[in-house]
Design a protein around this nucleic acid. Structure first.
Lengths: 112, 112
DNA sequence: ATATATACATAAAATTCTTATGCATAAATT
DNA sequence: AATTTATGCATAAGAATTTTATGTATATAT
């Protein structure tokens, strides 16, 4: 993904949040959207994305709907109710992570 | 480490920053310090820490000094010059990561 | 005609971490 | 006195996530 290893573990959070916003997206679209938003800082690889989407679907966080657009297939993913709840969790975990890391790297953010 | 998977990839950054601050630390001390600072949010496991310290040493980012304290050994690690430079990089990467993630999860932080 | 973009997929390898285990000394508890 | 907890290091098996490489196929731009 990114140039730094910190993105490891962030992919699920990113996918869920984008779907939470857009209601319905397909894999290729997610890759493009992330490139846009991050100004090419973060490029999701297909080899990471597609297995993750399949996993989220298997866990019941996403629903799939296959559409034929022109002559190509698109697999549209949508959050389930469970997926929406998990999105909230993941976003809270991200905020917690950021706070914790700030305390670690920025002594003035420590609550002694 | 933490309850969330986001900490994956953060360990090196944490180690380097703490050593940048304390000048000289041993493994067990790092584990305790992180627990303190994060109020038990983040517990570094020994199985992750020690191999990472060995790796940083092998890469020339850390120097080791073995001291016998009482009757027990302590391996004190210290940043090399290269390690100090890498710390700056890692901290910049963390800031970049946080900005990028904020843009992804918080639309109002996006620069369109 | 050829290259690039769109769209999905999987498999091998690399990376990082968890869990489990091992050794040994020191201090605290029962 | 005996046992548990704390201190201090280490490694190895397995799990999880990601990279890299490869494959298939249609559509558009050069």
């Amino acid at each position: 993904m990114g140039n730094s290893k910190l993105y490891k573990g962030s992919l699920i959070t990113i996918i869920l949040k984008l779907l939470n916003e857009h209601d319905k997206m397909y894999g290729y679209e997610i890759v493009q959207r992330v490139k846009e938003i991050t100004k090419d800082e973060l490029k999701i690889t297909e080899g990471a994305l597609y297995p993750s989407l399949h996993k989220l679907e298997a866990e019941g966080l996403l629903n799939v709907e296959v559409l034929k657009v022109g002559n190509r297939l698109r697999k549209y993913y949508k959050l389930t109710e469970k997926g929406t709840k998990e999105t909230v969790n993941k976003l809270a975990e991200l905020e917690s992570y950021i706070k914790t890391m700030r305390a670690l790297v920025n002594p003035k953010f420590r609550i002694d």
